[in-house]
């Protein structure tokens, strides 16, 4: 009888302490989850960009999800240079064709975010250094991208990311 009493006692004490523990952990959930992107940030919709003013060889910087996007109108020479590369030698093997929309291979649209540590590479603005491969050059740690914005040299592991996009018309592209 006494043994049973002790067992019931221990059970209640353990249960009470466990309840307190579970309750405390459950209360942590909203405190942690409040730091995740809020509904208005998640709803940040797609951006439409007018590209009619970008002549071949030029590029612009647009903003999507609060990050820079490079939109580049490639010249035939740049396309040729990109296609001439043996894809299998690349760190992140991708063809220019795969990175652009069929029929609009001259429009190279990439995030302006270096895949190394997130700096904005140079090369999209007028007069900026394009690096030795004629694409983009990240000044932070010296990553060099080619005319298809593929990583060629330096510490970055990946090509510049191509965001989801589609052409609403010949002059307007919708990102996101």
């Amino acid at each position: 009888m006494a043994g049973d009493g002790v067992r019931r006692r221990d059970f209640i004490n353990i249960a009470a302490v466990s309840f307190a523990g579970v309750g405390g952990l459950a209360a942590l959930y909203p405190l942690i989850s409040q730091m995740a992107p809020s509904a208005d940030v998640l709803a940040e919709s797609s951006t439409e960009i007018d590209i009619s003013a970008i002549s071949p060889g030029q590029a612009i910087k647009a903003v999507w999800r609060k990050q820079p996007v490079f939109i580049r109108n490639l010249t035939p020479e740049e396309i040729k240079a990109a296609d001439a590369v043996d894809v299998s030698t690349l760190r992140d093997p991708e063809t220019l064709e795969k990175r652009t929309t069929a029929g609009k291979t001259n429009w190279l649209i990439t995030m302006g975010v270096c895949t190394h540590l997130g700096c904005v590479p140079l090369g999209a603005g007028e007069g900026e250094v394009k690096g030795e491969f004629g694409g983009y050059f990240c000044p932070c740690h010296g990553s060099v991208y080619d005319t298809a914005a593929r990583i060629r040299k330096g510490p970055a592991p990946k090509n510049l990311e191509v965001p989801p996009h589609e052409f609403s018309s010949d002059t307007v592209v919708k990102i996101g």
Binding site: I12, A16, F19, A20, V22, G23
Partner: peptide, 16 residues
């Protein structure tokens, strides 16, 4: 509901 259960347990634990 959870708090009610926890409070009942806390009461029993206190009685112990």
């Amino acid at each position: 509901g959870f708090l009610l259960a926890a409070t009942v347990l806390a009461y029993l634990a206190k009685r112990n």
